[in-house]
């Protein structure tokens, strides 16, 4: 099982290498990539904003109980924003996007594979990676990055609203301590995670769709594998990026 998993990981990394190489010459396909990004954003913007808003609100609820014990309510905004931007926001929103964009993409590509549309493209002498995968791959990365950032912005508003209505903290106080705790590095950390997570979602979901072999059942299996593997990979990627980024800050 370990050997099989390592083989699978090797195949995935080789696939990522092929996609990235093909993506280098994709400037002439920018309109298609833009269209794919726009489609993903249209499909997921409302959900992301909604989820982001409530992530911030939940974090405020949780932290209110803790900081009140230490009579440190004025630090609520700083703690909520820091935790949301650096950790919880990117991860939860990435989970949501993997379910929405990831499942859609792997099912779409899987269906194209089993209905021989990919073979038909190869039959025309075109490279399916360049024609089909790269626009979706870059579209997911661009859109996910935008959506994650937008979700984080709304998580801030969610936290602010909950702080003023539930925790009884004036908005000026909520904002006042944020610059003391949330540094440029915190924001950079969130941005890096947004990028890494979008790369994880795009890679696994397009790979699982593209490598489907068989029929409708296998497309279903591919979608399930894409969903579970993306979630596991997101958690591992979160640990890894945190480990690296925290390491950098302590150097």
């Amino acid at each position: 099982m370990i050997v099989r998993s390592l083989n699978g990981l090797g195949d995935l990394l080789m696939y990522l290498g092929t996609v990235l190489r093909s993506a280098l010459g994709s400037w002439r396909r920018r309109e298609e990539i833009f269209d794919k990004s726009l489609l993903v954003i249209q499909q997921s913007l409302a959900t992301t904003v909604f989820a982001g808003f409530f992530v911030g609100a939940i974090m405020t609820l949780q932290f209110t109980l803790q900081v009140q014990m230490f009579s440190a309510l004025s630090y609520l905004g700083a703690l909520v924003t820091s935790a949301t931007v650096r950790e919880v926001g990117p991860l939860l929103i990435a989970f949501l996007l993997s379910g929405k964009i990831g499942a859609f993409t792997s099912a779409e590509l899987g269906t194209m594979k089993v209905s021989e549309q990919i073979d038909a493209i190869r039959c025309l002498g075109s490279d399916p990676i360049r024609e089909v995968i790269v626009p979706r791959f870059l579209g997911i990365i661009i859109a996910s990055f935008f959506l994650l950032s937008f979700g984080l912005l709304f998580s801030f508003f969610g936290g602010l609203l909950m702080a003023t209505t539930f925790s009884g903290l004036p908005w000026e106080q909520y904002l006042s301590q944020i610059p003391r705790v949330v540094s440029g590095f915190s924001i950079l950390s969130g941005v890096v995670k947004c990028f890494v997570f979008s790369l994880v979602i795009a890679t696994i979901c397009t790979y699982r769709g593209y490598t489907v072999f068989g029929g409708a059942k296998e497309v279903g299996d591919g979608v399930v594998q894409a969903a579970t593997q993306t979630m596991i990979a997101l958690v591992v990627a979160d640990w890894f990026t945190t480990f690296i980024l925290e390491g950098l800050i302590n150097v």
Binding site: S115, E116, Q117, D119, A120, C123
Partner: peptide
């Protein structure tokens, strides 16, 4: 070369 696929493989 032209090819008709078993499931037509039309671009839907």
């Amino acid at each position: 070369v032209g090819m008709l696929f078993q499931q037509n493989a039309l671009f839907d």
